[in-house]
Design a protein around this nucleic acid. Structure first.
Lengths: 210, 210
DNA sequence: TTCATACAGTAACAATAGTTACATAAGTAA
DNA sequence: TTACTTATGTAACTATTGTTACTGTATGAA
């Protein structure tokens, strides 16, 4: 574990902290599609991503869903941090977008590390910062963009985090994450195909140029 | 200043920290409508709100605007924190919603206080937490609610932060903050009036029951 | 008072998004 | 193979939101 930790976080944390993390943390491999956190659940440890990607979703009480953002290598979940510290229930759902490797750190360490390690403080604040910025970007998308532009952005992001020009999703799945209906997505995807930007197949979308 | 500080933050911070804040901070009174932060601006001090309210807005490059949330007594601006630490430009606009009293603390203190004072750390994390939650609520509104429901929520919030059942806004101002057009707001407000929930006047809206 | 301006009401229409309904195709299990 | 399920395509329609255009009215300045 210490090696994988060093590869991803070696430039961020001092040696003693890396040492501590590898002592109290647990290394985990999560398969694609695994539901990591559900809304309403209490969270007791925070993830440090080594590789892979996690998608963070918002649900409302009526079963409506919305993709908020993706976590990638070097990220942690500020929402988890936030919930842990406040000891409140999770307000979001987290699902492994790809096979993912990460280190889980028990939340009790937060307090002392924040007091002790400057690098940890910076990391935590940096996480909050990037997360707030991601949230702003999400708000920009849903407030200022039309559905066809949001879909385009979605395809780009999805392609990026999966590091592939082929997206393995059904229209229905995309519709859920953008909080619209399957028919709308099919319609807009067909437009993109007619524009020569993508190719549609069953269960997958081949991105040609966006 | 020390007295106003104690009233609002006495239960949060230990005596030595209160002492420090009153030594390095500057007390300010801001008139309603004053533009406190503009997008793209660098921020060098963080506000601790004593009284009043500040509205935080998001603008995109096309001049589109959207109200994100209000800051009130006991709040600080996590977005400011975030920008200060990252030394990045502000991504938001801040305007005094009412006459406001606050203490400005130079950002250089952040680092040492976070290391030194547990109460300060808690305050900062708590701020991030509430701000993330506010952002989620904003996302819920624009993603899951229709315009009439958003307007209703807007009127409630506005009434609350101004502590008044009379809202002094034009339809155009409301339209900007909800990122829609004046005609749409006029239409929906007229509906609410017909339902007996509000009374419309020039430059003001009297809330009867929401 | 007169003029100019800002504010609000409303109709008519356009654009976007959501819904319903049904057809067809591709995969899967028996 | 057949039967069944899941995914997609598409038309027709509705609902919501946004736009344009024009009205009258309140308010304040000249």
């Amino acid at each position: 574990m210490i090696q994988e930790l060093k590869n991803s976080y070696g430039h961020l944390f001092e040696a003693t902290l890396l040492e501590e993390i590898s002592r109290v943390g647990t290394f985990k491999e999560i398969p694609e599609g695994f539901k990591m956190i559900e809304i309403g659940q209490y969270v007791k440890s925070m993830p440090l991503l080594i590789s892979g990607a996690i998608k963070i979703l918002r649900d409302d009480s009526d079963g409506d869903e919305l993709l908020l953002y993706f976590l990638e290598k070097g990220d942690t979940c500020a929402m988890t941090l936030s919930c842990c510290l406040g000891e409140t229930k999770s307000q979001i759902r987290a699902i492994a977008e790809t096979d993912t490797k990460l280190i889980m750190v028990p939340i009790e360490k937060m307090e002392t590390w924040t007091a002790t390690y400057k690098s940890w403080r910076n990391f935590v604040f940096e996480s909050y910062h990037t997360r707030l910025m991601e949230m702003l970007e999400t708000i920009d998308s849903i407030a200022f963009l039309k559905m066809d532009e949001r879909l385009l952005k979605y395809l780009k992001d999805k392609s990026k985090v999966n590091d592939s020009s082929i997206i393995h999703s059904t229209h229905q799945e995309i519709a859920y994450e953008l909080h619209t209906s399957r028919v709308v997505i099919s319609r807009l995807l067909k437009n993109l195909e007619n524009q020569g930007k993508i190719e549609l197949h069953r269960n997958s979308i081949h991105i040609k140029s966006l």
